[in-house]
Structure formats: C-alpha cells, structure tokens
Amino acid sequence: MKWSKLKNFLAQCNLMLNRSLINKSYPPIIFDVEKQRVKFFSKATGQTDPVYFDEDVAKEKGFPSLLAPLTFLTTVSHEKKNPYQYLHDLSIDMKNILHASQSYKYHHLVFAGDQITMESKIKDMYDKKNGTLQFIEFESIFLNQNKKLIAESLSTLVIR
C-alpha cells in the first residue's frame, strides 16, 4: 500500500473512532467581562462607537456599562485551561485545523461587569470530498449571571 493511501486509510479510521465523541460536552467556562478587556477587544476590531470605550456614553444610552462588540463572546472560548483539549481528544494536530464558519444568535447584549457562563459540546462531525476534509461542529450557549440565555453559537472547524 502506498504511503499516501495508508495515510488516507488511517485518517478515515480515525474519523470513525472520533465520531463517538459527538455530543461530548466540555466543562463550563465562567468569564468575567472586564472593562479593560472590552476596550482592548473593541480597539483590536477597529470599533469607533464610544459606547464600546467610554462608560459615560454607554450610561447615557441607558446601558449599565461598556457594551461588548458583536463577536466579543469568542474571547470566552479561549479562556479554557487547555483551549486545545478537543484537538487532543480527537487526535488532531493544530496545524491542520482552520475555522470554517461561525454563527451567533443573540438574545441579550453583553456589558462590562457581566459574568458569562459558556457551555459547549461537540454537535456533529462529518466529512466532505471523500473524507479528505473533515468537519467538527461545536455548539455553545452563553448565560449571564442571572442565568439568562444571552447568545448561542455554532463554530465549525475544518481539518485538512
């Protein structure tokens, strides 16, 4: 058997094993939304509206504190003790992975001072192009300190 064929075969066996991890959930992450972090994230994504930087402006608009930008919740997922644990669980090398898609459904705004709990699980795994591209979907929900659902997300990663 040619090496490339063998590699493909092994990859496919691996994928079959991996599928048993569908529905695996990860321990919740608790994240305090700090003002400095909101400002830093807002600067890094080029926001210009003072509602992201100036607490007085945010309060004038009736908000409790600085507003967190639309994609701010992505920071929560990187706060895991070992953010790449799932790669280890799935025996995937980080260098082979890319972000394929990202979805958010919003229910409530997030502000500095909130405490967010993120609960995630592996929702699905599938492959395309005869197994040469494998996909993993992570589904997450985000709750605030009052246990109110604030957002849902779906992240799809592709393994090359």
């Binding site: 639309l70 972000h99 394929a100 898609s101 459904k105 919003y106 705004l109």
Partner: peptide
Amino acid sequence: QGQILEYHVQF
C-alpha cells in the same frame, strides 16, 4: 447592536 438577532459567516 440590540437590533441584530443573528450573525453568520463562512470563511
């Protein structure tokens, strides 16, 4: 921002 209900992208 409160008007935005869903935001999806594909890379």
